[in-house]
């Protein structure tokens, strides 16, 4: 039985807009328009889309804090809005921009409250808390008030809070927003291990491509309130025709792009820094990075290089641009 079932789900908002100096007009904005998807237990699904595409609206309806305009949602066998409290014991939610911890108390004081809310006995939540604190390295700041934690520390605390009751499903809304590379990576490793060991289902929204690459086998792309793509990430890259970009710094300046004999599928994009920095985009389905590098090094000595993956906004734009044409 699927853990999340969404059928023809829609939500519209009434927005007042000014019409003339004093009059206001009511306008319906369709944030989510008839989406369908299911998620099986143990899956890790990335829910992506541009700002305003309807991601957060969907998440709010899945967790029962927003009433759908129409359609049907079932999460862990519950109807989220009327059964919100029962559902809250089965799922863990992390809102990247909000906190479920008690702002003016030491971090460690939030967990007994959460344990009690989930009706867990001390013997039940305490060992689990120790395990989480250990895996997430919470030790050194457990006695620091939440308001004094850095964003990275707080997010680790938030994730531990969401997982304390061993939820079947964890919904994360922008969990890595604002985190540095190391904190992001730690969080991803932890979530991945949690899923592998306990079969926890993950649904996350993100703007970070690496979150998806590291964590999710399946991607749902929402654009303008409808599901634009549902499938594996590799498929998305193919559908969208995403290109990777290689940026090289040369030992000696080269002023003309024509000097490089690039293979088919690679396009010279720009010259910067007086001929030192060149960027070349290429199609990862046809060429490997090594082939492109070899072509460049045969013409000039490469001092440094970096590779840039396609970002999600770009992919979605590509996908939508091609679908609409």
């Amino acid at each position: 039985m699927p853990i999340i079932e969404v059928e023809n789900l829609s939500r519209e908002f009434q927005v007042m807009e000014s019409a003339g100096r004093f009059r206001r007009r009511r306008k319906a904005v369709h944030a989510v328009r008839g989406i369908d998807f299911t998620v099986e237990p143990g899956e890790a699904v990335g829910y992506i889309g541009a700002n305003g595409a309807g991601k957060s609206t969907t998440i709010k309806m899945l967790t029962g804090v927003l009433v759908p305009s129409s359609g049907r949602v079932t999460v862990c066998g519950f109807n989220p809005v009327p059964q919100r409290k029962a559902l809250a014991r089965k799922i863990g939610v992390v809102f990247g921009q909000r906190s479920q911890l008690w702002w003016d108390l030491p971090l460690q004081d939030s967990y007994p409250i959460l344990g009690a809310m989930h009706r867990m006995s001390e013997a039940d939540w305490r060992p689990r808390f120790r395990e989480l604190a250990d895996q997430m390295d919470l030790g050194e700041f457990l006695s620091t008030p939440v308001r004094q934690l850095s964003l990275g520390q707080r997010m680790r605390g938030e994730v531990a809070a969401a997982l304390l009751h061993r939820p079947e499903l964890v919904i994360l809304d922008e969990p890595t927003i604002g985190l540095d590379m190391i904190s992001k990576e730690k969080l991803r490793q932890f979530l991945d291990a949690e899923r592998r060991e306990n079969g926890t289902t993950l649904l996350l929204t993100t703007h970070d491509m690496s979150d998806i690459q590291r964590l999710c086998q399946r991607v749902l792309v929402v654009d303008d309130g409808v599901i634009a793509y549902d499938g594996p990430l590799t498929g998305l890259v193919e559908v969208a025709g995403a290109v990777r970009t290689m940026v090289v710094d040369l030992a000696t300046p080269v002023h003309s792009a024509a000097l490089f004999s690039l293979p088919d599928g690679a396009v010279h994009q720009s010259i910067e820094a007086d001929g030192i920095r060149h960027s070349v985009s290429f199609d990862p389905r046809r060429l490997s990075a090594a082939t492109v590098l070899a072509a460049i090094s045969s013409a000039a000595e490469v001092a440094d290089l970096s590779l840039h993956e396609p970002d999600i906004e770009h992919l979605v734009r590509q996908l939508y641009g091609s679908a609409r044409r």
Partner: peptide
């Protein structure tokens, strides 16, 4: 601020 979402996703009244 929208933080009410957190209050409503807790398993308490």
């Amino acid at each position: 601020s929208g933080d009410i979402a957190v209050d409503l996703s807790r398993s308490v009244n």
